[in-house]
Simulated scan of single mutants.
Amino acid sequence: MSTKLELLKSAYTNKQTGQIQDPLIKDVVDLVESRVEDILMTQKATCEDQSTVSSANSLTRDQLNNLVLEAVPKKRGRYVGLDCSISTGGSSASVHCPIPVQDLIEQIKNKNK
């Protein structure tokens, strides 16, 4: 099963040039990829014995999807570039976008200011 990052890349990459044309989506992809690199480097640095280094070479699909959802801006209750709503009452049972708890906390903090 694909991650949201792979889906963004696939959907927005120009097949002839191999480049992402939409500057917003390109920024999101670049941001998520740099965050993944930072997380992996941090994990590798904190691993002390060789047996745990191999488990620090990748993120789970859920972790990667959450990074994408944190980076993607929302417009009118939907993630830009992704075909899913942030509301839990979605019309399609086959598409489920989890709402990142951290995102909700930030929204609440910003609303209370």
Rank of each mutant, 00 (worst) to 15 (best):
V72T: 10
Q50H: 02
I39K: 08
T60E: 00
T88E: 02
S85I: 13
Q50K: 07
I39H: 11
D103L: 08
C84H: 00
S51E: 07
D83R: 06
N66R: 13
Y79P: 03
S85T: 02
P100T: 03
L40E: 14
A71R: 07
G81W: 08
L67E: 13
D38L: 00
N66W: 07
N110E: 06
Y79L: 09
G77C: 12
V101A: 11
P98Q: 05
S51R: 10
V95M: 09
L67D: 12
M41V: 06
R61F: 00
K74R: 15
N57R: 03
N65M: 09
D83Y: 02
K74Q: 15
N110G: 09
P98T: 14
K75E: 08
P98S: 12
S92T: 03
D62L: 15
Q107N: 09
N66G: 10
L64S: 04
Q102M: 13
V101W: 05
T88M: 11
L59W: 00
S55Y: 14
G89L: 13
T60C: 09
Q43P: 10
K111I: 01
D103R: 07
M41W: 09
A45Q: 13
A56N: 05
V80A: 00
D83T: 05
A45I: 14
S58T: 13
T52W: 03
I39N: 14
Q102D: 12
S91I: 06
T42A: 03
A45L: 11
K75C: 15
N57Y: 04
L82K: 02
Q107E: 13
